[in-house]
Design a protein around this nucleic acid. Sequence first.
DNA 1: GATGAATGAGGTTTCATTCAT
DNA 2: GATGAATGAAACCTCATTCAT
Lengths: 221, 221, 221, 221
Amino acid sequence: MKTRAISSDEKQIKRSLILSAARDLFLADDRQLPAVATIATQAGLAKGTVYLYFSTKEEIFLALLAEEFSGLLSSIHRCLSLLSSTKKPNKKLKQELAKELIATVTNYVQSHPEFLRLDAMSYSVLEQNLSDDFLYAFKFELTRALVDTGKQVDLIFALEAGRGVTLLMRTYALMRGLWQSLDYPDHLQQLLAHKMFEPIRPEFHTELRAALGEYWSGALT
Amino acid sequence: MKTRAISSDEKQIKRSLILSAARDLFLADDRQLPAVATIATQAGLAKGTVYLYFSTKEEIFLALLAEEFSGLLSSIHRCLSLLSSTKKPNKKLKQELAKELIATVTNYVQSHPEFLRLDAMSYSVLEQNLSDDFLYAFKFELTRALVDTGKQVDLIFALEAGRGVTLLMRTYALMRGLWQSLDYPDHLQQLLAHKMFEPIRPEFHTELRAALGEYWSGALT
Amino acid sequence: MKTRAISSDEKQIKRSLILSAARDLFLADDRQLPAVATIATQAGLAKGTVYLYFSTKEEIFLALLAEEFSGLLSSIHRCLSLLSSTKKPNKKLKQELAKELIATVTNYVQSHPEFLRLDAMSYSVLEQNLSDDFLYAFKFELTRALVDTGKQVDLIFALEAGRGVTLLMRTYALMRGLWQSLDYPDHLQQLLAHKMFEPIRPEFHTELRAALGEYWSGALT
Amino acid sequence: MKTRAISSDEKQIKRSLILSAARDLFLADDRQLPAVATIATQAGLAKGTVYLYFSTKEEIFLALLAEEFSGLLSSIHRCLSLLSSTKKPNKKLKQELAKELIATVTNYVQSHPEFLRLDAMSYSVLEQNLSDDFLYAFKFELTRALVDTGKQVDLIFALEAGRGVTLLMRTYALMRGLWQSLDYPDHLQQLLAHKMFEPIRPEFHTELRAALGEYWSGALT
DNA sequence: GATGAATGAGGTTTCATTCAT
DNA sequence: GATGAATGAAACCTCATTCAT
């Protein structure tokens, strides 16, 4: 392939091609960022070309993660929009609302398996080797969207200003922590097949729903 | 250092020496496992000597993490032992008990800064390059201790069997997730100095206490 | 050297460059495969570049050996072609033919000092650390060429089918064994200067010619 | 084991223990000298103890090889002694004698599988890293025994002085070369299962007998 | 814009040997 | 004499990134 992406659209397409290849490879080979050469091959591009679109390997995956965050927050946004009403919610209604929100979050991560896997690498791997500019842009956009959705939460749950962001952060933290505690690489799975390990390997999505339920229940009191 | 660790005790001491050097270096140079050569130098040993005590670099750090887990669970155990009484706790008392437990946990991680940093690397970095035996031993001991402390929680909070382990797991997950969300490398800290980023950078320990408080409040209802 | 080998030809040249450097170093530093770093430096390349052309160090030297085998068999082929005639050879003529063949072989190894040195490492060193694919390709090509030349021997010496290959194999074995028995590293040479060791250190090429002469004489009877 | 080998006998026994362990391990793990630590364990000794008896690892294996050479030459000696007669042998008888000698040699290597395997490592591996003294002693003894047996050959075959040594050397060379050409590591065996490779993998002992037969036939003419 | 050849830093691990006990 | 803890040299290979074409 030696076609040139001249128009902005074509560039976007090629960028997506790279992201998509990176995602596929990452999903296939757990807990290891695939090599740039592999990504390039998978995307049908040359290695050098990848560097025309991303300046480090980590950028690729952080971009992927950014998309996921954006997708999750959009889902929440959409969900909350549907739930919005003019009445001030009473305690029971709030619990209903929380349930919806939790369902939305759970569904999202269930249908986006790469999200939490990538997320689990962001602390120790992804945030290395990134230009400040890129990292800043990432955090900026993330914060913006988070604050935005947080405000919506404030509104719908009739909370004091800023409380929504906090709830979202803690929700995210719990989810993130649970994932890392309950996702095992294949070979480890087999080692932990014995009954004695059952307490440390409940099914993730069930556990997530339950844990978030408890958290929101406490948080809304 | 050229003294030879002949007795089992002396070997334990030398092992600790290595672990201690590894911890110091890890704390100094964030989010990156130091090279074995560096650890050896820091411990005043030759590179090869380190490999007499640990068979891969990752083993060193997983051993460190194991110590931390053990320490944390001991702290909780000790705390709960002090709180144990013969009376069945009412709701208010349970909240008091939870508060104590949370305080214990928070204090522990505050005085063991390497714990959550290491923990944050275990998913993506530490569990690579480990022999199955070692990994299994680690998980085995951890599970044993966890189940043990879980039972104590069951008892003191008068919960149904197995509930305590679940609560501890979720507590750990929340803590783990919060740490990773709120700990920034130095250079990033500076980028996020602006007021707009305040929502995403509350002080960790305060936040931890608050979030755990909400979670336990919900979980005990 | 920073020129890039784009075309296939240029790549062949660079490959040869590496092989040539490897040969020179091997000849200079007997009985020890030089380090890849050294080969790279000698070839005026970076270490990584060498690995673009060969995937392990052993591959380099087996490739070198393959060239030698190929060269030797070609020489024999050429020699035999010149000798071919339509008449069925009588016993005396056969001896003449054998003499020519032996001369060809002896001349070849004399002018390719790296051949038998490398060959002497193939059993214990070279065939380690090679991909099955590479090793197979090597054996395949070697066998093909050997069988080919063997047939020519059958023809010219008027032998039964398959006999030629056997003769060539045994010729090679005798040569190989003699080399290893008569080639001494420098420092050993000096130790063996005394007259008593004369029986075990005749001049190699003379000895080779004589031994092969005897063998073929016996084999053709 | 902390018993001390005080008497010379006890030392000899311990030495043999080491040699025996080394041989066993070498036979088990082809084409690779076992680690000193492994040899020590196998011999039921400590690593350091091995170095009381041999000053380098290579010495162990060269000592083993020396035993084999000695054994082979003894076998030949014994065989020739039995064949000795007062009559001057005619051509036919010589061939008979040669046949016997070849049978002796073949039997010996067949019942001492470690011999040719070790031998094949002597050029490239064993003769590295040896003290001059040791190497000299080895060559000295070997030469002495060889010349000795050579003289016996001279006598029995009624050859000119020195011819016997030459014949023995060439016999050894042919055997050595054949072994290295026909012994394949296990995984390679499988790769070469195809019919096309048959010419390069006749059964060793049959081939050895045939090749030596041809050689001696030619040499005695 | 696209390519892919070239670079070279970087860190792990092994193991023969020594020597304090 | 025996032990085995300590040493440290040695070399491989990977792979992110650059830049000549």
